[in-house]
Design a protein around this nucleic acid. Structure first.
Lengths: 174, 174
DNA sequence: TACTTAGTTTAGTAAATACTAAACGTTCAA
DNA sequence: TTGAACGTTTAGTATTTACTAAACTAAGTA
């Protein structure tokens, strides 16, 4: 007899939860996304609560994070106070918006601190070997971060990342 | 009067700790790397303990993880039982080995679970709209993961990623 | 107006993770 | 063969993070 769709869905959801955790997001987030991703219709918050087994509070906060990252979209219907959510299906678009979101957070702050180190070294310059050595190392790291930064910016700038662009990158890397 | 190098180093170390945490690694890891990265000479475990303020146990386990990722290198000297560690300075090489390392861990397992979902759907095929819908969605995700996978594999295959290749990618993305 | 139904916030708990302290196993040296 | 110097492992603690339960706010309805 055919394995029930319900069961397969559940297994898929668990897989996405794992992936979510792997990327440093709560596993509940992965579960919420999975449920929405496999649903042909947009779901209300309570429906998501039912499907995932999480509480309203958790779903409420985590779905907001998902929306901020552009992985789900919220919509409302006329004459219905409920909000409805559906999954973004264009993953390339999602990557771009995740990058965008991350760009302006802790990461940027931390990277800036490396640049500040470099500036401090310049301002308080002392002519000796160790100072020179440290300066060169910090500078090299700075250059690396700058490269990563221009890469992410370039990706964000694209209207679509898409499989086509991935293929183009692949051909260059050959 | 010039700000002391010691203090600048400490600030830099804190910055890297933050970055480390951002990428989902323990902040101690970032600190250890920072200390090694700013040291002109290879350091022993106890020296790292002294510089970071962590305990021997923590440094021991975390530096092993760093070595596995190719971010630090361990070496030993003749007639000296201590191990010495130094930072990898080629970040592109480091990225490659981090990708390599990650490739064979939880992530791969999780991604495989998506493929398994797809197979289960095929094996137990039932002709109805929802089944069809779910199948298409899971398939789309699978294709996306495959694209990401070939990207990382391509990067791993390169002898050097380097700034040159980054620039080539950038030019394609224009 | 009070009552429902929705989503959010908050205070507290559970679970996961990073870390410490100390015991342990090895290796070398006296 | 005992002891010291290293690095590792382990058991327990502290910190962080994810989540629950329940109070709360807002908006529509009777």
């Amino acid at each position: 007899m055919a394995r029930s769709l319900q069961k397969i869905k559940k297994e898929f959801t668990q897989g996405l939860s794992q992936i979510s955790r792997f990327w440093g997001f709560p596993k509940g987030m992965g579960a919420i996304f999975a449920v929405l991703y496999l649903s042909p219709t947009a779901l209300s918050l309570d429906e998501i609560v039912r499907e995932t087994g999480l509480t309203k509070g958790a779903v409420s906060t985590e779905i907001r994070a998902l929306a901020r990252m552009g992985l789900v979209h919220r919509s409302s219907r006329l004459g219905d106070r409920k909000d409805y959510y559906e999954a973004e299906t264009d993953f390339y678009a999602a990557i771009r918006s995740i990058l965008k979101e991350r760009q302006n957070t802790e990461f940027d702050r931390a990277v800036r601190s490396v640049r500040e180190t470099l500036e401090k070294l310049e301002e308080n310059w002392v002519e000796n070997d160790e100072w020179q050595f440290v300066y060169e190392r910090v500078q090299a790291l700075q250059e690396f971060f700058d490269a990563i930064d221009s890469l992410t910016r370039a990706i964000i700038r694209l209207e679509r990342l898409g499989i086509t662009n991935v293929k183009r990158i692949l051909s260059v890397l050959k």
